Simulated assay, not measured.
Amino acid sequence: MTPMPATAAVRVRRAELSDLDDLVALEEQSFAGDRLSRAQYRRHLDSESAQVLVASANHRRFLGTAVVFFRKGSGAARLYSIATQAEARGKGVGSALIEAAEQAARRKRRSALRLEVRTDNDAAIRLYERLGYQRIGHYASYYEDGADAWRYEKALD
């Protein structure tokens, strides 16, 4: 497998049923706990209250995914999950997914996008802060393994 060039144009689209195996495989590679199951992904693919996004570049069909939730009555959308293939990290895939999540939130007339991130996930925290997210809260023992989380938010114009 040839490495992905740093300048690859990343495309993001809504996930389809044919992406289900890739979504589940990336989830299992990326997270030791707090994973979305195949059944949960399947539900979210057809949901009005969720959007599953998939990133690709240079004919690589599947480089990453993001899951965004839209709770009825809430002015904010929630970036529930984001994951990228190991070889795609640092190449703009995460940024492209977050920007697509923000666009999806704007289309659903949400005024902000919120997310939680492990307090020890320095790379993700740097990415969110670089993209304009502000830390707004802390959750003790938020994750399945007892790790704490920071909550971030970005106002959407």
Rank of each mutant, 00 (worst) to 15 (best):
M1T: 15
M1N: 04
M4I: 15
P5T: 12
T7K: 07
T7N: 15
A8F: 15
A9G: 07
A9W: 11
A9C: 10
A9H: 13
V10D: 11
R11H: 15
R11I: 11
R13H: 13
R14W: 03
A15K: 08
A15T: 07
A15P: 09
A15C: 11
E16Q: 13
L17V: 11
S18F: 15
D19R: 08
D19H: 14
D19G: 14
L20A: 09
L20T: 03
L20D: 09
D22R: 10
V24Y: 14
A25H: 12
L26I: 07
E27P: 04
E27R: 02
E28S: 12
E28H: 10
E28I: 09
E28M: 09
S30Q: 13
S30V: 05
A32H: 08
D34Y: 10
D34Q: 07
S37Y: 02
A39T: 01
Y41E: 06
R42P: 03
H44Q: 06
L45H: 00
L45G: 02
L45Y: 00
E48M: 05
E48H: 07
S49G: 05
Q51Y: 03
Q51R: 06
Q51W: 06
V52S: 04
V52E: 05
V54F: 13
V54C: 14
A55V: 04
A55I: 02
A57Y: 14
N58S: 12
H59Y: 15
H59P: 05
R61N: 12
F62K: 00
F62T: 00
L63T: 00
L63R: 06
T65D: 04
V67G: 03
V68K: 03
V68A: 09
R71L: 12
R71A: 10
K72H: 05
K72D: 08
G73I: 00
S74P: 03
G75W: 08
G75E: 12
A76R: 01
L79N: 01
I82R: 01
I82K: 00
A83P: 00
A83L: 07
Q85N: 08
Q85F: 15
A86Q: 10
E87L: 08
R89N: 05
R89Q: 13
G90P: 09
G92N: 08
G94V: 01
G94E: 05
S95N: 06
S95Y: 10
S95H: 05
I98K: 00
E99H: 12
A100F: 10
Q103V: 07
A104F: 01
A105C: 04
R106Y: 07
R107V: 06
K108D: 01
R109E: 13
S111C: 10
A112K: 04
L115Q: 03
L115M: 11
E116W: 04
E116A: 07
R118L: 03
R118K: 02
T119H: 02
T119R: 07
D120F: 06
N121S: 04
D122T: 05
A124K: 00
I125V: 11
I125W: 02
L127M: 06
R130S: 03
R130W: 07
R130A: 09
I136V: 13
G137I: 04
H138A: 06
Y139H: 11
A140E: 12
S141P: 02
Y142C: 15
E144L: 10
G146A: 10
G146N: 08
D148E: 11
A149E: 10
W150H: 09
R151A: 14
Y152N: 07
Y152K: 03
E153F: 10
E153K: 04
A155R: 09
D157L: 14
